[in-house]
């Protein structure tokens, strides 16, 4: 299911124009990272994908649905959105109820819901915590509950807003694993992130925003090496990309594997 964004502009009631003419097509099954400084319009852009915000002008289509003509509740069956702060969405007395909330809202059968919930809990390594109150869990695990509660909705498109903020290395690895699994299932994953190393290691396509416009868009390998242009939106290339540049490697490298291969070829 494609996301078609055409000449999107959005102005907040305060008069601030947060998105100033963005056109993009995100293909089904793509893994896209959206990067850029605070205020570049990242969150404003993705909140159009499930209709939380309506374009001031231009249009956003999710498959054949125009977000202007579709309710948020209906769009929720196509677009799942994990908010940055899990505490802004968790309310149930146990993890199982929390994760069941979304699929139940979408009106799936009991059988289908149970299956989806079980799979989401397994994917987020929460299967042994189903009866725990989310507020008795550490913030790290609350984040996983928030992830599970969206994954269980089984939407073809999943959006993550800053999934790694405040997470330690172990949990970042868990989140990366969830994203990889979603990719295997053919889902579109769109992630807003400040964590450029996480971006380099888990995403094939990168869209860099600046001042409400697309600054760069393309395969991660091409985008992440463009140090000067990225600096315009206060993004530094990933650590290993910078190291590769410093060592004057011929190609842009993104992760450990690419770096070591390039070093081996050089030697």
């Amino acid at each position: 299911m494609n996301i078609e964004i055409k000449d999107l502009r959005f102005t907040y009631p305060t008069g601030l124009e947060a998105v100033s003419g963005i056109s993009l097509t995100l293909e089904a099954g793509e893994q896209v990272a959206i990067v850029g400084q605070n205020g570049a319009g990242k969150t404003t852009l993705v909140r159009h994908f499930n209709g939380l915000l309506q374009p001031t002008s231009g249009s956003v289509k999710i498959g054949d649905w125009d977000t202007k003509k579709t309710s948020v509740a209906k769009l929720a069956s196509r677009v799942g959105y994990v908010f940055q702060n899990p505490d802004e969405q968790l309310f149930s007395r146990d993890v199982l109820t929390e994760v069941t909330f979304g699929p139940r809202n979408l009106g799936y059968s009991k059988e289908k819901t149970d299956g989806l919930v079980e799979r989401a809990l397994a994917l987020t390594e929460l299967s042994d915590k189903t009866e725990t109150n989310p507020y008795d869990l550490s913030p790290t695990w609350r984040k996983m509950v928030a992830l599970a509660s969206i994954i269980a909705m089984d939407t073809p498109i999943v959006i993550f807003d800053e999934p790694t903020t405040g997470q330690d290395a172990v949990n970042v690895a868990r989140i990366a694993n969830v994203i990889a699994e979603l990719q295997k299932e053919g889902k579109t994953v769109i992630t807003i992130t400040h964590d450029i190393d996480f971006c380099a290691e888990n995403f094939e396509r990168v869209v860099a925003l600046s001042k409400g416009q697309v600054l760069l868009d393309g395969p991660a390998r091409e985008i992440l090496g463009q140090e000067e242009i990225l600096a315009q939106t206060y993004v530094e290339p990933p650590q290993l990309t910078r190291l590769g540049k410093r060592l004057r490697l011929k190609e842009t490298v993104r992760n450990q594997e690419e770096f070591l291969n390039a070093i081996a070829r050089r030697a």
Binding site: V72, A73, I150
Partner: peptide, 19 residues
């Protein structure tokens, strides 16, 4: 502002606040 974010988060989970 915070309650608006919460409403947005729950609507994203298919909670129908408009009916």
């Amino acid at each position: 502002a915070k309650s608006q974010t919460i409403i947005a988060a729950q609507r994203s989970r298919g909670l129908d606040t408009e009916s």
